[in-house]
Structures are given as structure tokens and as C-alpha cells.
């Protein structure tokens, strides 16, 4: 996308235009954070209303899959940051490799998540599906919440992968030393990572027995 570097109306200076694009992205991320904020508030309300049942319900999740996924997303974030740094340093090929690594790790995250959903289905933990059974209504509610929040997060992972893919396939983006497109795609990817960093203690860590 060569027009990425072109000057658009209403700007007079490329540097200022770049600052504006980046600030726009950061504001968008702030608004994304608030979107998930509503879910975290719901989790907090649930936990404050039923402290013991909430903790017990979390014990049915697969801690090790959640932990592995956290490590995977953190590593994927590292790769996105590396892609930004290498593109900025004039190493477009290296930057492309880093982007591909970030994308593959993102796909691995989704794969593990899918495997996790599958095993939850076999254990009858998916509300509304065949064979679902719960110890109590709070566990039912907790699992509903778990699927809504991880599902919404997974949609954002897919969106992030799409952005990273666009950046990876664009030679111009990789050669752009102001890293506008790669930088903004990476920003989005890091935010998806941060949301998971908070979902992890909310869903997996309350009970690790």
C-alpha cells in the first residue's frame, strides 16, 4: 500500500499526519478497553455476589491451557514488537518473518482455545448444548460469562490476525520506516494481549485445585 506514506487532506506535514493516525488508533484502543471493561465489571459483580461459588466454578477450567495461551499471546506480542522495531531499522524481510511468527502464534492461540472449547463440550460444560450439566446456577452463569468473554476476545484475536496479515503481505508497509501500518496493527495486537492478561486471572486463577 504505497499510499500509506502519502500526505492526505487535511494535513500539511507527514510527521503530523502520522502522529494523528497513531493518536486515533490509541483512542480507539481506549474505547476497546472500555468495551471489555463492562465485562470485567460483570465478572466483579458475580464474584462479589457469590464469592465461594464463583471460585468453585473457575476450578473446572483448564488452568494449563489458559496458562499456555497466555504465554503464547505474550510471545506473539513480542514478535509484533520485533516486527515494528526491525521495520523501523530498515530490515523489511526480518520484519516480515516476525509478523508471520506473530500470526502463527495467534492461530495457535485460537487452536488451543478451540481444543479447550471441545473438551469443555465433552465435559458438559457448554450451556445450552447437549449433555450440559452444572453443579449449581452460579457455575452455569460463570460458564455463560466465560463463553461470552472468551468468545468476544477470540473475535478480537481474529481481527488482530487479519490486521497483522495485511501488514505482513504489504511490502510497502514493511519498507515504511515510519511503521505506520505495522505500528498500528501491532498496537491493536498488544491490546488484545492485555485484555487476555486480565481475563486470565478473572477466569482461570480463582481456583487452581
Amino acid at each position: 500500500m504505497p499510499e500509506q506514506r502519502a500526505l492526505h487532506e487535511p494535513f500539511h506535514h507527514p510527521a503530523r499526519q502520522r502522529q494523528a493516525d497513531r493518536l486515533g488508533m490509541i483512542l480507539f484502543l481506549a474505547s476497546e478497553a472500555m468495551l471489555f471493561g463492562g465485562l470485567f465489571a460483570a465478572a466483579m459483580a458475580l464474584r462479589l455476589l457469590y464469592p465461594a461459588d464463583y471460585v468453585a466454578a473457575s476450578g473446572h477450567l483448564k488452568l494449563w491451557l489458559g496458562t499456555a495461551n497466555t504465554a503464547i499471546l505474550l510471545t506473539s506480542s513480542l514478535m509484533a514488537a520485533v516486527a515494528v522495531e526491525t521495520a523501523r531499522g530498515g530490515r523489511p524481510r526480518l520484519s516480515g518473518y516476525a509478523l508471520v511468527a506473530a500470526i502463527l502464534l495467534g492461530l495457535l492461540f485460537l487452536g488451543i482455545k478451540g481444543y479447550e472449547y471441545g473438551s469443555e463440550y465433552r465435559e458438559g460444560l457448554i450451556p445450552g448444548l447437549h449433555g450440559a450439566h452444572f453443579e449449581g446456577r452460579v457455575q452455569h452463569l460463570f460458564m455463560n460469562f466465560y463463553f461470552v468473554s472468551t468468545g468476544l476476545h477470540a473475535l478480537h484475536v481474529i481481527g488482530g490476525i487479519a490486521l497483522l496479515t495485511i501488514a505482513a503481505f504489504s511490502r510497502a508497509a514493511r519498507q515504511d520506516r515510519t511503521v505506520l501500518l505495522i505500528g498500528n496493527a501491532a498496537l491493536y495486537w498488544h491490546l488484545v494481549d492485555i485484555i487476555w492478561v486480565f481475563l486470565y486471572p478473572t477466569l482461570y486463577l480463582p481456583d487452581v485445585s
Partner: peptide, 24 residues
Amino acid sequence: LILWVFMEMRKEGAIARLAMMAAM
């Protein structure tokens, strides 16, 4: 850590930092 280093908030101006802080 992610915000400060990966998202390069350490290099950003006050406004970008303020925007991320605001959400928090």
C-alpha cells in the same frame, strides 16, 4: 510492561499516554 515497552508509550507524547491512562 506491555504498554510501556511493547506499545512504546515510553516514546509517546503526553496525550497518547493520557489516552491510555484514561481508559484505565
